[in-house]
């Protein structure tokens, strides 16, 4: 229940930001010294939509790559590559997205593509790590029983491993998407739009009201997606685990 109240609050804040007649007096109150309050070049709705699409697309790509690598590395044939896969994705995450962006622009040009690459590099690790951890920590006797009763390797994966691992993988995907919403502000540096444009313009023109509206819109978006995905994760739990968690509010918070 609390989850839905949170989601509602973030949504209200975001929608209020889209209505200039509400936003302008708020900004005037907080930043009386600024000479322009509402970002004039693009509507906040358009920037937020761009931002959302960029983050979700990067999240989807990272989810597919992270899960795919995680599943591959835990198969019998993939095990020898487990350490390698882990190391490469850790390396990808330690590279600052801005640096990846700078390196990629000469090859991919300005716009959407280099930003997508930087976001995917930066956000694959949580999905991969959670996939690996979830599959590696499944109870041995359950897997032994699954094989022992005559499930093929694919049946064990689809009927036993993935359903049991999905809640933890879901957490990885949620973290990945939230990271992307925050990081997608660098999109402005490559001309890919998004809420980063408001923040960057505010910084260069020394207008804190612009920085503020970009930052708050992006934060509301992140929090809203977090709540939504948390609810979806809850839906992924097998019924039995869901019952347990319902009885334990500390876990569902």
């Amino acid at each position: 229940m609390r989850r839905w109240i949170g989601l509602f609050v973030y949504l209200v804040v975001l929608v209020a930001f889209f209505i200039p007649s509400i936003l302008e007096p708020v900004l005037q109150f907080f930043f009386p010294g600024a000479n322009e309050w509402i970002f004039p070049r693009e509507s906040l709705i358009k920037l937020t939509t761009e931002h959302l699409l960029l983050s979700l697309l990067a999240g989807a790509v990272a989810a597919v790559i992270g899960m795919g690598l995680g599943i591959a590395a835990t198969r019998r044939a993939g095990r020898p590559f487990l350490t390698l896969i882990r190391d490469v994705s850790s390396l990808a995450q330690t590279m600052p997205p801005a640096a990846v962006l700078a390196l990629a622009i000469p090859f991919l040009g300005f716009g959407f593509k280099p930003v997508l690459l930087a976001l995917v590099c930066y956000s694959t690790l949580p999905v991969l790590n959670n996939t690996l951890a979830a599959i590696e920590n499944l109870p041995r006797p359950v897997l032994e029983a699954a094989r022992g009763i005559g499930m093929s390797r694919l049946q064990v994966l689809l009927q036993i491993e993935l359903p049991l691992a999905l809640p933890v993988i879901g957490t990885g995907i949620r973290i990945c998407v939230v990271i992307n919403v925050g990081t997608a502000t660098i999109g402005a540096l490559a001309g890919a739009g998004g809420l980063g444009s408001v923040i960057v313009a505010g910084l260069t023109r020394n207008n804190p009201a612009w920085v503020f509206q970009g930052a708050i819109a992006s934060a509301s978006l992140a929090l809203m997606l977090n709540s939504l995905l948390l609810a979806a994760e809850h839906g992924l739990q097998p019924a039995i685990l869901r019952n347990h968690i319902d009885g334990n509010s500390a876990l569902s918070a």
Binding site: P141, V142, A145, I149, G150, P163, A239, I240
Partner: peptide
Amino acid sequence: TELRRHIGYVIQQVGLFPHMNVAENIGAV
């Protein structure tokens, strides 16, 4: 898989599938 589906297998730690209820566990094979 053919062989195993025709040999019952019981282990000490049981290894019931936690996301399936009792009927679904028994109906697995």
